[in-house]
């Protein structure tokens, strides 16, 4: 059998084995690194604006004549974390159905975007909101008023979906 030996003796020469020059080299490396530009973003002051592909808090699209949602319940059905609760109501308009109740529990939501994918009306989309803070568990359950966002604010995401959704 031809076993290749890989001992410390073979790998390192004398100067490497007495450590100190190599340690000095390493220290020099970290010293140079100290003066390179920093990568930290000072968050609350410098806010990051995600692109359209970002999956933040799911929201409902609000058009001029009301919400797009027709309360079909597919999002609620597909949600793997069971975060969405929908109750449907009927109106006299051409679009006969609307949600009486639409709640997303943000403690359950895993931002997978399945609700958006499954929605036939493109009514629920992922927004760019990522700094969600709740002081009580009850506050984390967002109702329809909190979920409805005017369509103008969601243009990036809607364009992204038009371009890449199959």
């Amino acid at each position: 059998m031809n076993i290749e030996k890989n001992t410390e003796k073979q790998r390192l020469n004398f100067w490497e084995k007495i450590y100190l020059p190599e340690i000095a080299r390493g220290l020099g490396m970290t010293f140079v690194e100290m003066f390179k530009p920093k990568v930290t973003r000072q968050y609350p002051e410098e806010v990051w604006n995600p692109t359209g592909s970002y999956r933040g808090r799911p929201v409902l699209v609000l058009e001029e004549d009301g919400e797009r949602c027709v309360a079909c319940g597919l999002c609620s059905r597909v949600c793997p974390a069971l975060a969405i609760e929908v109750a449907a109501g009927e109106t006299e308009k051409t679009k006969e159905r609307y949600p009486i109740k639409f709640e997303i529990n943000m403690l359950r939501c895993i931002y997978c975007g399945f609700c958006e994918e499954v929605c036939p009306e493109e009514a629920i989309v992922m927004s760019k909101d990522y700094d969600l803070v709740f002081e009580k568990q009850e506050d984390a359950i967002l109702d329809k008023d909190q979920l409805l966002i005017p369509m103008a604010q969601l243009q990036d995401r809607l364009e992204f979906l038009r371009q890449y959704r199959r």
């Binding site: 970290t30 690194e33 100290m34 003066f35 390179k36 530009p37 920093k38 990568v39 930290t40 000072q42």
Partner: peptide, 10 residues
């Protein structure tokens, strides 16, 4: 501070 600078942080 120094650890941060070495790791390109603030």
């Amino acid at each position: 501070k120094i650890s941060a600078w070495i790791q390109n942080r603030v």
